[in-house]
């Protein structure tokens, strides 16, 4: 297996999101779910997208695939291998969706068709996106189920989703997504509904698939632990905007945005048992009540006057770290990067 961490840096970006803005509701008073998000993803890279519920993580994924129109409006550029997905027609997108870019959803319980055997749900995807004949499709389906770690794959092709456990259903979802050999996998909280032991298995599987096929992954999660376990880079979202991004180890070791810091700080580690945990005061703002300045300003311990009035502009510093904050935590000393 390749040493992905060294290798990944040298690869070109396959997905470049520039200033993505997704809004809903009336034009004159829009509800902005994603506000000027930029992100770049290299081949074979696993990119964690972290944030609380309502921070716009899932909408970002759906915007990439054009799954939120016509009710939502997408602005900005989503450059996939040089083509702007945001400007493509529904037909052109159809050729990319599920083939080059596949998505797996949060709830394995509800996102499989309960009326079709899983074998059919995989071969369906193979029929749509590959030129394989029926017998070959069947063989490929068995190989896929086998690859994602479903024991006795051949015997289970005829089984219906309800005959699988949660972890197994999530594997089936991954197998369906992988059928067309996508170059990009969008994973929306793929392990949130699962136990830690099964989560661990699925994350290892995603890692090995990324390494093996050079597949890029955007992994949406709310758990920094999941990011630490498997992501090369991480972007932290709050209130629809990007707070901070960078290599996982760097961000976790030295978070610079007060929100990232609070998020990491509220996870008990190295504190005396039964002492109060650090908690970020307040609650995240609703879609209609985003403050005019920095979205995090009302809850931020570092907030200045400027934070309440002006949106911070994201900047990228050495070591590939992005930050949008008027008054960040002091950065690591220069020689570390």
């Amino acid at each position: 297996m390749l040493d992905r961490h060294i290798d990944a840096a040298a690869r070109p970006a396959v997905l470049e999101i520039r200033n993505l803005t997704t809004s809903f509701g009336p034009q004159e008073r829009p509800l902005v779910a994603v506000d000027g998000l930029s992100l770049s993803l290299k081949a074979g890279e696993i990119h964690g997208l972290v944030g609380e519920s309502g921070s716009g993580k899932s909408i970002t994924l759906r915007s990439i695939l054009g799954l939120i129109q016509p009710r939502g409006r997408v602005g900005g550029e989503i450059l996939w291998k040089g083509r702007n997905l945001a400007a493509l027609s529904e037909r052109e997108l159809g050729a990319i969706r599920g083939k080059e870019i596949a998505m797996i959803f949060q709830e394995p319980m509800t996102s499989l068709n309960p009326l079709l055997p899983v074998g059919l749900q995989i071969t369906e995807n193979l029929a749509a996106h590959t030129g394989l004949a029926r017998a070959e499709r069947e063989r490929e389906a068995v190989a896929l189920l086998d690859r994602v770690g479903i024991p006795g794959a051949r015997a289970r092709l005829a089984d219906f989703p309800h005959e699988f456990s949660g972890g197994m259903r999530q594997r089936v979802m991954i197998a369906i997504a992988l059928a067309s050999r996508p170059q990009l996998l969008l994973a929306d909280e793929p392990t949130t509904a699962l136990d830690v032991t099964i989560q661990d298995q699925i994350l290892r599987l995603l890692q090995s698939l990324a390494a093996e096929f050079g597949m890029s992954v955007i992994l949406v999660t709310h758990d920094m632990g999941v990011v630490a376990a498997c992501c090369d880079r991480v972007s932290v979202m709050y209130g629809g905007r990007l707070c901070e991004s960078g290599p996982t180890a760097d961000v976790i070791a030295a978070p610079r945005h007060p929100y990232t810091r609070g998020l990491l700080h509220s996870i008990p580690r190295g504190v005396a048992p039964r002492t109060p945990l650090y908690s970020i005061p307040g609650v995240p703002p609703g879609l209609g009540e985003r403050p005019p300045g920095c979205a995090f300003a009302p809850r931020c311990p570092n907030a200045l006057d400027v934070c309440r009035d002006e949106k911070p502009v994201p900047s990228v510093s050495a070591g590939g770290r992005g930050l949008a904050c008027h008054n960040p935590e002091p950065g690591p000393t220069e020689e570390t990067r």
Binding site: V196, T197, Q199, D200, D223, M224, G225, V226, A228, A229, C230, T248, A249, I252, L264, I267, R269
Partner: peptide, 11 residues
């Protein structure tokens, strides 16, 4: 169970 639980240590 403990080994599988996500920690903040980058593995």
């Amino acid at each position: 169970l403990l080994a599988a639980a996500p920690t903040l240590e980058v593995k």
